[in-house]
Computed example of a mutant assay.
Amino acid sequence: MRRVFVAGLLLSLVLGGCSLRMAYSQLDWLVPWYLRDYVMLNAGQRTLLDRQLAARLDWHCRSHLGDYASTLREAQRVLSAERIEAEDFSPFLARSEAWWQEIRAELEDDARVLLPALSDEQVGELRQAFERRQREARKEFLGGSEASQREARIARMEKRLQRWFGRISAEQRTLIAAWSDALMPTTQAWLDSRARWQAAVIDALQVRTDEALFAQRVAAFMAPDEAGATPEYRAQQAHNRDRTLVLLADVFNAATPAQRQRLLREIDGLAGQFEGLACATPDRDERLALNAD
């Protein structure tokens, strides 16, 4: 179920035409759930994490998985057309952003519960993990020459598209290369923003025994990404997002019949999985009874 939760988030990014880089950076917002990957937890902390996780997965299952399935079914209908335009993806992007804001709000509540339980030693461990992963990200996305970075960026996008289309054609590779060349450079700004966010988490943990002050700092580092972004960076992100939407449309329009069939099969299969996992929403009488209890 943890994987389903993350898959749901990444699904919204895929449908929204966002890059692998965006998906990678967004995962840091799931620190409350990935504490085990950053910090060695004791038995009491694991129990607390599991209890919060169970409640959050139940909420997510009831509130979002059905929407993911219906959105995928809608995407099937859109992608059954002979030709699509970049604008056809816009409703999916808006929907994914709305989902993310809802999830972010829920995770803020969890962060206020889970993070204060860390000891000073664990905070130090978390800081070291942040620093290590920041170095890894810089090496992955900024290491090597500009030419090697370009090739890596193209390879990442090809791999992501192969998940849906299968083997990428020469024409589609040309489209991906042109997309890469048209992107504005945001990697350094993104990494800097990521480092500031990690520093804000550590800063908040320094006052975790002060409930009111800690809550304020958690709200600050869980605020929407746009809150601390410069106008220039927002403009660059918007440009790159638009170019990615154009790429998705162009790759689809250049797809062979076999590729289109595979795409629709993949979407159908994923929609079926979400339909099978979605929880029933309590009816009005059940909700009233729950509230009365």
Results as ranks from 00 to 15, higher is better:
G143E: 06
D210F: 01
R217M: 10
A255D: 02
A220Q: 11
V123Y: 02
F214E: 04
R262K: 12
A238L: 09
A235M: 03
Q172M: 02
D203C: 05
R138K: 13
S148G: 04
E232Q: 12
R243D: 03
R173N: 09
D192S: 13
Q149K: 14
Q149E: 05
S148T: 14
A254F: 00
Q162N: 11
T230N: 00
R173E: 15
A170H: 12
D250K: 07
R156W: 08
R156E: 12
Q149A: 10
P257R: 02
Q206R: 12
R132C: 03
E146V: 12
W190F: 11
S145D: 04
R217Q: 15
W179M: 01
S148Y: 06
M157N: 10
A212N: 09
K139C: 08
L191V: 05
A178R: 15
R243G: 02
S193E: 13
Q149V: 07
P224W: 06
E140Q: 11
E232V: 15
Q206A: 15
G124A: 07
V207N: 05
G143W: 06
Y233K: 00
P185R: 02
M222K: 09
F214A: 04
T174A: 14
T230Y: 02
A189D: 06
G228L: 08
G143V: 07
G166D: 05
P231L: 03
A129V: 06
E146A: 15
Q134D: 11
A229I: 00
A170N: 08
W197L: 11
A223M: 04
Q261T: 14
P231Q: 02
R173P: 02
Q122R: 08
D192Q: 14
L183S: 00
E140I: 08
E158K: 13
D192H: 11
R243C: 04
E232I: 09
A137L: 14
Q172P: 03
T230G: 02
T230V: 06
W190S: 09
Q162F: 10
E121K: 11
L245R: 10
A199L: 08
F221G: 05
D210N: 14
A223N: 03
R262A: 07
G144T: 08
Q162L: 10
Y233M: 08
S169H: 05
T186W: 00
L213Q: 14
R127A: 15
A170M: 10
Q206D: 13
A178Y: 04
E158I: 15
R167H: 14
P185V: 00
R160H: 09
S180P: 01
F130E: 00
A170Q: 10
R150C: 02
L126V: 06
R150F: 14
D242L: 09
